[in-house]
Amino acid sequence: MRVLVVDDDPLAAEMTAAVLEDAGFEAVQAESGTAALEVLSTDPSLELVVSDMNMPGISGLQCFQALRARGDERPFVLLSGDDPQALRASEPGLDACVRKDFDLESTLGQAIADVLAARRP
């Protein structure tokens, strides 16, 4: 399964990608929300988006809103240094919110598993 990792910080993107790859996903990186929107519009093989919240240009949340607004329903997991509960509350449509933390390996893996389980018909 191919996953798009969106983060303007290349190291953070690498780290997220490493966690995902370790969990058996194929990770593709995009360095901004705009780049993500572009890749996602042309590459249907990407099945899930894991995006950082805080980026120049459009934020992860805005990227999510843009996807939904253009009818793209692919699961979207938001990473943030802030309180994930509050973010989730502000945008209930998000599939998951995960705190950027050293626990990423377990929390992100769990979040993705939950999202995929919830999406399964």
Partner: peptide, 8 residues
């Protein structure tokens, strides 16, 4: 966001 989406 709209602008970014259109540009994409």
């Amino acid at each position: 966001t709209l602008t970014a989406t259109l540009r994409a």
